[in-house]
Every structure is written in structure tokens, then in C-alpha cells.
Design a binder for these strands. Structure first.
Ligand SMILES: [Zn+2]
Ligand SMILES: [Zn+2]
Ligand SMILES: [Zn+2]
Ligand SMILES: [Zn+2]
Lengths: 160, 160
DNA sequence: CCTTGACATGTTATATCATAACATATCTAA
DNA sequence: TTAGATATGTTATGATATAACATGTCAAGG
């Protein structure tokens, strides 16, 4: 089993975090939008782990870093990151995770491990195509989609 | 465009409701489980429309029908119906909808119209297969999945 | 400069969604 | 007919999310 998503594989995670911030800065500069301190910190919080964090978890960490600790502080930063494509909301978890391919237009497919809570974003083209075809047959136009699988990641498959 | 899902097409809706209850009764009898008054009423409430209702909407209707009006009343009935496969939770909406193919083992794919709120369940085999393949490539074992599309139904596509 | 308008943040309050825990009632089978 | 299992009622609280408004920051145009 090669080419595992980073979330399921040992890797130099400092790259993930560093790249995430760098790409966000670059893309936002092109769009004339600002990666303000709260937004930056929020993205760093999400990038710190390959899993999804609830808004209140994020809020708590923001508060520790010296930002306001009222819910809108977290929700606004998260909303911005989601709109700009640097984070996604995982609906099954009511939680947020950093996007692993910012800049590339993509509808994410999430694999969520129910044991270790790892969240991986996996290539979606085929799944999207199948969904679009099913929708088309029903005369339905897809604008946004959430595709999420809950199960066991490779590391937890044995331990089940 | 033929073979539209009922949710998007004019149809004799009394069949949907009647069949839904009848099938639930039959299946539950086989399983030695009971379609109690609250459960039955809850299923009727969900079957009444091809859309998803929040638990508190359901609760309000249950209260009007003479049942308790505390949240657990609705959540327990909904949980039972979901476990037994007569209803699904639509995660994007935090809401519940009656299953259109009870008895058949299936992971649903939902098409949710953002204008008229109609929710249709559409054939999922291809989409599921694509998702399973993507997961397999990542060494991930899918146990449950939610696949939901938000967009415009055939009736609302023009009106957009 | 300095004003002004857009954007961003802080804060209060409240809305919405969901479950824990325990008391009471009903059904089923020994 | 009584004991255990299942179901319902009720209180209380937890978890998630947004509305509304006050304050602060910044960058352009005068
Ligand atoms: Zn990493
Ligand atoms: Zn895992
Ligand atoms: Zn119908
Ligand atoms: Zn519609």
C-alpha cells in the first residue's frame, strides 16, 4: 500500500504546516485579501494536526494565544478560511480541518478514522463524476457536495 | 428527463406515505420490534413531505399530536427510525428525512434543492463504488458514508 | 496630513441542535 | 404475577452556531 495520504502515514509534518501557511499567504496576496493574525493563527491551529477540530476547540486555542474567546472570533476566522479554500467543514463531525490542496479547485472527499480521528482528504474526481452523473439522471444540478466516509484508517484497521 | 425521483416530480403522494408505514410495519414485525405510536407518528411526519425536518420541527408536530414535547421524545423516535433504516439524517441540514427504499440495504445519496428544500434519495451504487475505490487506494475501510449534494432540482433550475 | 469608508475584531446576547440522567409506565415471558 | 426488558415522560444541561452592535485598524483620496 503506497501513496498513502499524509494523514495516515508518518511524515515530516512541519512541511504540511509551513506549506499551508505559505500557500495561503501567496494566494491571498493575489486576491488582495489579508491573512490577519487571527486567521493565520486559526489556520496554524488547523494545520497542526491531520484531524478536524470543533469551533470551540479552535476558540480555546485562539484564546490561549491571546485572541478574544467569544464564539464569533473562531467562527469568523473559520468561515473566512473555508470561503477562501484553506479549510473545510467536516459535516459529520461538525468540525473543521485544514485543506490539503489549497488553490486547486476541488470538492473534497474525506476519510475519517473513527478510532484515531485522523481526517484525510482523498482524490475526488471519480467520486465527483459518479455523483454528477447520478444527479444529472435526476435532472439535478450539483453546486456543492459533501462526501465523507467514516471507517478505519490503515493504521487502525488491525487494531479494530 | 424521465424517471425523476418522486421528490422532484408530481405524483400521488398518498402512496409514499401509505407504503412507508406499511413497509415499516412489515419489516419491524419480522424483527420483533414495535412501531409504537410515537414512532409511527414520527415516521408519518417525515413521510408527509419530500424534505428534511429538524428534530425540533418534528417535536413540535408530535406535541400537536398529543405526545410529549421534550427534545428526547423526538430524538429517540428519530434515532430508532434511523437505526431501523426508515429515516436518514441529512448532515448538511442537521435534519431528518424518510427513507424512500426501506428494507433495501443502501447507503443513501441525497440531492438537496437549495431553493425549494426538496430532498431526493438517488441511486448510489456507482457513487459508492467510486468512494470505496478511492478509500481502498488510501488503505481505508469505509463503514459508513454520507454523500450529499446541494444544488437545484429540475423544477428550480429555471427559476435560479 | 486627515478624513472617510471598507474591513476586521471584540463583545453581548440568543438561537439552534443534541444528550445525560432519572422517574414512570407498559409490555413480555417465565 | 412478578421480574426483566423496553418504552416514554421530564428535568436539566451540553454543544454548536449566529444576530446585532460597538470599537478598532488600515489604505486611499482629498
Ligand atoms: Zn502532515
Ligand atoms: Zn485511525
Ligand atoms: Zn411522495
Ligand atoms: Zn427545488
Amino acid at each position: 500500500m503506497d501513496h498513502l495520504p499524509k494523514a495516515f502515514d508518518a511524515h515530516d509534518h512541519s512541511h504540511c504546516a509551513g506549506n499551508g501557511i505559505a500557500q495561503a499567504e501567496e494566494i491571498l496576496a493575489k486576491r488582495n485579501l489579508r491573512l490577519t493574525p487571527v486567521r493565520r493563527q486559526t489556520l496554524e491551529i488547523l494545520l497542526a494536526e491531520h484531524r478536524a477540530l470543533g469551533a470551540y476547540d479552535v476558540l480555546q486555542r485562539l484564546a490561549k494565544a491571546g485572541f478574544g474567546n467569544q464564539p464569533p472570533v473562531a467562527y469568523r476566522a473559520l468561515e473566512f478560511l473555508v470561503e477562501q479554500g484553506f479549510a473545510h467543514k467536516v459535516r459529520r463531525l461538525n468540525a473543521f480541518t485544514a485543506c490539503m490542496h489549497p488553490g486547486q479547485d476541488h470538492a473534497p472527499v474525506f476519510l475519517i478514522c473513527r478510532l484515531c480521528d485522523a481526517v484525510a482528504e482523498t482524490p475526488a474526481a471519480q467520486v465527483r463524476a459518479a455523483l454528477d452523473a447520478a444527479a444529472l439522471a435526476a435532472g439535478f444540478t450539483v453546486e456543492r457536495s459533501s462526501i465523507e466516509a467514516l471507517g478505519l484508517c490503515p493504521n487502525c484497521t488491525g487494531a479494530a
